[in-house]
């Protein structure tokens, strides 16, 4: 019996342990010049992201994680912890200082930090979508809901008006936007409805990775609840690899199964979400959880 017990390999096919689709390795983003000493002068233990040596800000450093299809990974932390920096680097909005982010596309691995800007943007069209906290960042306010969804579709080569309409209405129905509002300007929509349109747009080309940046922050509680439910059901329906950035543990708890805790640009703890909530190890995580439970 000892023999079988020491065997740590198990039948992956039967349990279908998902393999990563997005793999981030040693991502770093520093504002200002830096070297080892400057990096070492910042972080959770130093209780600052700003170097006392030269004032450089180490917004994120040595951030590594993997996300599998069908899985949502949370990144939690206070504002300024670096969580949004990480997401923006993955989105292509910020250029990271160092590190790699590999996406598995079929049999190819593509480091999205390494590709030409044009290919980067194409990846944003059909492979990596972002849902921003502020819908005006992800949507054109003076364009209709349908037109906003038409943008990624036409960027991906859709040229048939009726098919674009059909796809847009399908996505809006799925995100519970009344179809009779499809041809209204997004500007005329409420905050929660804008966020639904943004999610519909993000799903337009069935991306394999979706990045959510505080997707419900700033919405009224009841509206936020509806948007959260929507994201939850979409994540369960689709085999998306999702990254959810939030300062709100209730969002993280509801949407994610695994979670990173960031503090002053560093990952201080990484665990299953229920572990973080019930058995947090790092002093910072304990403080965060205690505050959330209060």
């Amino acid at each position: 019996m000892n023999d079988t017990f020491t065997e740590r390999r198990y039948d992956i096919a039967r349990l279908a342990i998902p393999e990563w689709l997005l793999k981030v390795e040693r991502l770093g983003k520093v504002y200002g010049p830096y070297d080892d000493e400057i990096i070492a002068s910042t972080g959770s233990e130093r209780d600052t992201a700003k170097s006392s040596i030269n004032g450089s800000v180490v917004a994120a450093w040595d951030v590594s994680f993997e996300v599998a299809p069908g899985e949502a990974l949370g990144i939690v932390g206070e504002s300024g912890s670096g969580k949004t920096t990480v997401l923006r680097c993955l989105a292509g909005d910020f250029t990271p200082s160092t590190g790699s982010a590999t996406i598995r596309l079929g049999s190819d691995d593509v480091n999205i930090f390494d590709v030409e800007p044009a290919q980067r943007r194409r990846l944003r069209v059909d492979t990596v979508s972002v849902v921003y906290q502020d819908p005006s960042e992800g949507l054109k306010m003076n364009v209709t809901a349908g037109g906003n969804i038409a943008e990624p579709l036409t960027a991906a080569g859709w040229r048939n008006f009726s098919k674009i309409r059909a796809r847009a209405s399908d996505l809006l129905a799925r995100t519970e936007v009344p179809l009779n509002r499809m041809d209204d300007l997004v500007r005329a929509f409420s905050g929660g409805m804008r966020q639904r349109v943004q999610i519909a747009k993000a799903l337009a080309n069935s991306p394999s990775v979706v990045l959510f940046d505080e997707p419900t922050t700033g919405l009224d509680a009841s509206v936020a609840a509806g948007v959260l439910d929507l994201i939850r059901s979409l994540l369960e329906e689709h085999r998306i690899a999702a990254v959810v950035v939030s300062h709100d543990f209730s969002v993280i708890e509801m949407l994610t199964s695994r979670c990173l805790v960031m503090h002053h640009g560093r990952i201080v703890e990484s665990a299953l979400t229920d572990q973080l909530l019930e058995d947090p190890h790092h002093p910072y995580t304990q403080r965060l959880v205690a505050a959330a439970r209060a």
């Binding site: 079988t4 065997e7 740590r8 198990y10 342990i17 993997e66 899985e71 695994r258 299953l272």
Partner: peptide, 12 residues
């Protein structure tokens, strides 16, 4: 006949 040590596995 196959066992895993839950303490030695990755989170996922």
């Amino acid at each position: 006949g196959k066992y895993v040590d839950m303490c030695a596995l990755s989170d996922i």
